[in-house]
Simulated assay, not measured.
Amino acid sequence: MTIRLPDANGELRAYEPRREPLALRPGSPFSSRTVFSAAHVVADPFADVSPDSPAAVDWDATLAFRRHLWSHGLGVAEAMDTAQRGMGLDWVGAAELIRRSAAEAEAVGGRIACGVGTDQIAAGSLAEVRAAYEEQLAAVEEAGAQAILMASRALCAAASGPEDYLEVYGHLLRQAAEPVILHWLGPMFDPALEGYWGAADLDAATDTFLEVIAAHPDKVDGIKVSLLDAQREIDLRRRLPDGVRCYTGDDFNYPELIAGDDKGFSHALLGVFDPLGPLAAEAVRVLDTGDAKGFRELLDPTVELSRHLFQAPTRFYKTGVVFLAWLAGHQSHFTMVGGLQSARSLPHFARAYELADGLGLFPNPELAEERMRNLLSMYGVNQ
């Protein structure tokens, strides 16, 4: 049986859904790479809220999804932009998410790292930015999780040049209890971060970023780079001090970056590993055996889906991630914090469904098809 899907031109065409999913089973953590999935939150669909209200989260479903990721050996990067930080989830909600997820990680033996930012303030002086970072760093460390120092909109607005970034990050690294992950998020993910590290020129920004790391190598576990520029990431990771990891955040080029070359490789901290979790885990286990070719054969076909989800405006990739989680049966509804389920078009959803189904990502293809048909009917598409 076929399903009629709208294309980018608004024309309906027939698609025959896959009937058998990939056989992807839970497994242990990996030996050759450290891999995190940045996980989404599940909204409470019955909460009486508006787009401007504080986030209403379905905690049971949210934590169940994290257990799903941990069961496949993936680490969870918590309270990152995939969880709608700065796009519906405020610091109060993020702090609760961190506390709950860190406790769950301890209970099941899962690896977790959590985002530290400044989103409890909209703007402020450098001292206020530093204090906001300190509050969040203390909360993450108190929860027993590793800290990810996220890029700050407030710091980007308050800083007058590279020296302010060096001062703020140096202060935070000196007081961090354990080595942290530094996150460089490009403006394609958040336009408010244009000119981060004190320069619009990426070469100059890279020099400042590396200067921060060089001054405190013992406090930097690694860096997460989300610039969607594979060669720039490769060049940057080759300049890192010994012992400092590069976690790719490049949702366009991750297979080649994780596979690496004769001079090194990237670990991973990726939003796209939310919908790809079990398949990504299977691929990394193949890589653990030294089979880079087999790894690429499994992961390369996923890039088309990832590039579709992360197409401009890239910051709305979260909508496609949650849509696929609904189709896959990880949640009972397609509702998002802040009403963000409206951020992509029906043709976008249709293509995401087709690509994910073709990869065998849905554990129950019949359920995914049924839910896709229900969505299409809401838009007036009669089968």
Rank of each mutant, 00 (worst) to 15 (best):
residue 32 S to L: 12
residue 1 M to G: 14
residue 315 R to L: 13
residue 290 G to P: 08
residue 336 M to F: 04
residue 178 E to H: 11
residue 212 V to Y: 03
residue 260 G to V: 04
residue 278 P to I: 05
residue 110 G to V: 00
residue 282 E to G: 05
residue 116 V to I: 07
residue 48 D to E: 06
residue 116 V to G: 09
residue 183 H to L: 05
residue 255 P to M: 09
residue 43 A to Y: 15
residue 332 S to E: 15
residue 64 A to T: 07
residue 326 W to T: 02
residue 362 F to M: 14
residue 25 R to Y: 06
residue 249 G to M: 11
residue 235 D to F: 02
residue 84 Q to S: 14
residue 218 D to Q: 08
residue 276 L to A: 02
residue 257 L to H: 03
residue 119 D to L: 14
residue 363 P to V: 15
residue 301 P to S: 12
residue 336 M to N: 07
residue 315 R to N: 03
residue 106 E to C: 14
residue 206 T to W: 11
residue 12 L to N: 06
residue 375 L to N: 00
residue 322 V to L: 14
residue 11 E to T: 08
residue 301 P to W: 13
residue 341 Q to S: 03
residue 34 T to N: 00
residue 223 I to Y: 01
residue 147 A to K: 10
residue 184 W to K: 07
residue 62 T to M: 00
residue 76 V to D: 06
residue 29 P to N: 05
residue 265 F to D: 15
residue 21 P to T: 06
residue 39 A to W: 07
residue 213 I to K: 05
residue 241 P to A: 08
residue 93 G to A: 04
residue 244 V to H: 05
residue 358 G to L: 08
residue 169 Y to M: 13
residue 315 R to P: 06
residue 46 F to D: 13
residue 24 L to W: 13
residue 313 P to K: 01
residue 121 I to R: 06
residue 88 G to D: 11
residue 125 S to I: 00
residue 251 D to T: 13
residue 224 K to S: 11
residue 346 L to M: 15
residue 250 D to I: 00
residue 40 H to Y: 10
residue 165 Y to A: 13
residue 33 R to V: 00
residue 50 S to C: 09
residue 120 Q to C: 02
residue 191 P to N: 01
residue 119 D to N: 11
residue 121 I to W: 04
residue 296 R to D: 01
residue 181 I to F: 12
residue 187 P to R: 04
residue 56 A to R: 04
residue 136 Q to V: 15
residue 329 G to C: 08
residue 193 L to I: 00
residue 90 D to A: 14
residue 351 R to C: 10
residue 87 M to P: 00
residue 144 G to V: 12
residue 212 V to T: 02
residue 152 S to P: 05
residue 176 A to H: 12
residue 121 I to P: 09
residue 373 R to V: 12
residue 173 L to M: 03
residue 75 G to A: 07
residue 186 G to F: 03
residue 254 Y to H: 12
